[in-house]
Nucleic acid binder design. Sequence first.
DNA 1: CAGTGGTCTAGACCACGGT
DNA 2: CCGTGGTCTAGACCACTGG
Lengths: 233, 233
Amino acid sequence: MQATKKATYQHVRDEVVNRIQNRDWPPGAILPTEVELAKEFGCARATVNRAMRELAEQGIVDRKRKSGTRVVVMPVKQAKLEITPVRQSVEEQNGEYRYNLVRREILPCPDWLASKLALPARSPVMYLQCMHYGDNQPFQFEERWINIAAVPKVVEADLETLGPGEWLLREVPFTDAEIVFSAVAADKTLSEFLGTPVGSPVFQMERTTWFQGQPVTLVRFSHHPGYRMSTRY
Amino acid sequence: MQATKKATYQHVRDEVVNRIQNRDWPPGAILPTEVELAKEFGCARATVNRAMRELAEQGIVDRKRKSGTRVVVMPVKQAKLEITPVRQSVEEQNGEYRYNLVRREILPCPDWLASKLALPARSPVMYLQCMHYGDNQPFQFEERWINIAAVPKVVEADLETLGPGEWLLREVPFTDAEIVFSAVAADKTLSEFLGTPVGSPVFQMERTTWFQGQPVTLVRFSHHPGYRMSTRY
DNA sequence: CAGTGGTCTAGACCACGGT
DNA sequence: CCGTGGTCTAGACCACTGG
């Protein structure tokens, strides 16, 4: 029964996963303690601890002091979405990336934005419209508001060649973000930029970012028709 | 300068994050070695190692043997999506959940599905249509195909009260999944079930799951108009 | 109070990959 | 080659929490 060869934390982790999947330890069951598992696998407790800690992070088991480790009954699956710059997304699909700055102006913060970002009314923001192309086909329309107080340097930035997304990524190490995905109908602007009929479904991603509590930027990406965002776990 | 009080891995981790955010260690910079950091913080190397390992998992630093640890230049942000059962989503929004099984039949696997799941042609699958309501408003329309060979018991399952999603979650510990998000236009069926005009934008999530390499189910969720999927990081 | 996981230590050996 | 991270160990103390 004892583990045969090596006792790496990965072996322990995988073996435990197997037993859970095979219902040796059914949902809701309590697993042996770390000391017991360490004895069985012939390794140190720290090794078992690391293995179990990974499983807890994955949401497969639930650990509580004194109670012990329990197999989660209805695991909440976590999918990781990788938020990559547009350029990278396009180039990973072997596409030729092209970027165009459509509009750039500084204006007083509209009320809805001030409310959303908790900014003083009419504080200055930079408003941008950009288009991203893959193989000369519309890929993504970008609409962005930047809180100038948070990034004063942006007023002098050259955003013609490097997109605002990549520029900000280099300049401001934002720490926190909220992301919202939705499906909307194309209005006239989207229709023209994305080359799709008015009213057709558009996949949107809206992201608000902060740096140490201070709002930095809100950006709305509207994707070309047929766009699919995928992931695995 | 040395760290003052405690030297938990969290203190080390947070302090390193601070220095990176403050540009003490700018993007691309090489950090001190684990031994050096351990000395500075007055702790064991294992403690530093755990701190740095977490940062590497988060994609903030990049670690290579011999080369050392480097601040990632353009971090690929990872957003975690929690995939919860519909019932839970509704109830978390204080909504009253209701479920209805619309259609249930066993039929030979259509070609597109056989192709997608790498199933033998015309192998039997169960096809389901379900509606999920929140506060008696349409929340989500579910269309699902289940590979009967993978889950024979499903033919005897009572899916009237418990939805197929929750039933499967209890019966089959699937291990792998692919998820695709998209925006589509409502066809006649979706229009009727979701109470939205034909052609209006619908947010869809399509998920295919496997258990140890064997395809289990493909499900397509079509959400009510105005649905927004959000997350933070 | 006592059992369980959470963490730290000091040391050791290993594996990868630049030089 | 040899410096760096990757991992394991044996032991210790702590922190939370159920009984």
